[in-house]
């Protein structure tokens, strides 16, 4: 087929394009992911019974807030990555700020605690299931974002996948925080971060393969 023929074919009867398609696709994906993740939480884990009492404490807000900050930052980058030629207005190291805040809090707690408490602070009672549960609750958002990205135009497939995974991990962790009984900063600094890194790694791999266009 000659290039001129192709051009004529593409132009013939071209349909108008709605503005803000990417915004709609990404926000729809996020809302779907969060909603399904929340349903999974209610179905398989349940909300911790003392949610009312803990909901005004600092550890609880860190637990929900740090992953939530990851979601917000992830959205900023995903949005830029989905548009060819658009550079994010902020640098990628900004992604580390919430994690750095969490780690500062964790180290501060660690050095100020009696050494006999260290093991309890790090392992808690649920470290075995923490990574798995966060990764599980990240799945809906990861899948939904992947589909949204496939309809957009990410020029860096692996990085886009990784950021989508990081965002999904943030959703998984902040939803899981409503169930998880752990309140010690060192526990969150290790297991929550690992839980969010698992979807990041998987999605980097998936993105590299399935986000080509």
């Amino acid at each position: 087929m000659k290039t001129d023929e192709l051009i004529t074919m593409l132009a013939t009867g071209v349909e108008p394009v709605q503005p803000h398609v990417p915004e709609k696709l990404i926000s729809k994906a996020l809302l779907t992911g969060v909603a399904i993740s929340f349903i999974l939480l209610l179905t398989f884990y349940g909300i911790r019974p003392d949610i009312k009492e803990v909901s005004s404490t600092f550890p609880f807000w860190m637990k929900v807030g740090v992953p939530f900050a990851n979601v917000v930052l992830g959205l900023v980058f995903i949005f830029a990555l989905a548009h060819p030629g658009k550079l994010p207005k902020i640098n990628y190291w900004v992604l580390l700020i919430p994690i750095a805040a969490l780690w500062t809090w964790a180290i501060w707690t660690w050095v100020n605690a009696d050494p006999s408490q260290h093991s309890e602070m790090l392992w808690g009672k649920t470290w075995r299931v923490c990574i798995k549960n966060i990764a599980f609750l990240a799945v809906p958002t990861a899948v939904a974002t992947l589909f949204a990205l496939r309809n957009l135009a990410p020029t860096q497939p692996m990085l886009s996948g990784a950021i989508a995974g990081w965002l999904a991990g943030g959703v998984g962790a902040s939803v899981y925080a409503l169930h998880c009984p752990e309140m010690a900063a060192p526990f969150l600094a290790v297991w929550y971060v690992l839980g969010m890194l698992v979807p990041t790694a998987i999605m980097a791999w998936v993105g590299n393969r399935s986000l080509r266009w």
Binding site: V21, H83, P84, G85, A153
Partner: peptide, 22 residues
């Protein structure tokens, strides 16, 4: 197929060359 990822308020050629480069 990806023309909906061009943002109307932004310059066109950077988008175009980013697609070509990809």
């Amino acid at each position: 197929t990806k023309r909906h990822t061009y943002r109307r308020e932004e310059p066109f050629t950077p988008w175009l060359y980013a697609v070509a480069r990809y």
